[in-house]
Write a protein that binds this DNA or RNA. Sequence first.
DNA 1: TTCATTTTTGTAATGATTACAATATAAATA
DNA 2: TATTTATATTGTAATCATTACAAAAATGAA
Lengths: 130, 130
Amino acid sequence: MGAKETLINHNIRPSITRLEIMEYLLSVRTHPTVEEIYDYLLPKIPTLSKTTVYNTLKLFSEEGIIKLLTIDGAQVRADGFNDMHGHFLCTGCRKLFDFPLGELAGECLDGFDVKTREVYYTGLCKNCQK
Amino acid sequence: MGAKETLINHNIRPSITRLEIMEYLLSVRTHPTVEEIYDYLLPKIPTLSKTTVYNTLKLFSEEGIIKLLTIDGAQVRADGFNDMHGHFLCTGCRKLFDFPLGELAGECLDGFDVKTREVYYTGLCKNCQK
DNA sequence: TTCATTTTTGTAATGATTACAATATAAATA
DNA sequence: TATTTATATTGTAATCATTACAAAAATGAA
């Protein structure tokens, strides 16, 4: 499903800005920060403001079409994909990797109503282990 | 193992301040914020400063005897327990619950060197579902 | 067009965290 | 003990991501 349909399905008017942000999120799996989104789109949308990026991400996440990750406590990152995956942050190169995640076993959560799940590892990626 | 032994084992001099912080972390499973630790200890240590709490938590976490959680992006929380458990944040009452965690299944992480793991759910606790 | 609504923008405020220099405390040495 | 050295703690000021807010711009309706 494309960016436009996604927005319309969630009753979000598909303005240029919103479309560009959504398309960007769907085009990369790096889970960019606000800064990165802003820097990437500024050439295309010269009047763009960071506040707009913040507002838009908040809107998207309230509608459940993206997830806002607070991976390393520093900046928020946007995750436009909703397949079940975990995140691996390499403490060497600071890159963020996705990894597939099957069923989570062993969670005893009787009575709790789980809405969102996040699995987050840190360590060293292949390159940085040398 | 008590707070004092833990510190000594990690070559951290067991000053009053450090002991009190460590003991507090071991006495509650609420994963308190810096603010909460500070407020709790101020009556006991009237000269305590927040910077010291930050410094001490950083020291502890570098030595691997606690974990610093960035649960909801707002404040850091300190987790003094190192059994394998996940965290559940109730979006209603904002309370943080621990839950036991068995083996994590389905993680394809060939070649990655995993150092830390965090599993973090949100939703509604029993009380807040009404 | 004109009016009302929504979206975007820029600036200023907030609030957690860190940098840093000064002070206090403890350990080591003479 | 007195003196020196290293370590711990403190307070203030700076940093930086995020939010609040009000104005401006764009869009849609009448």
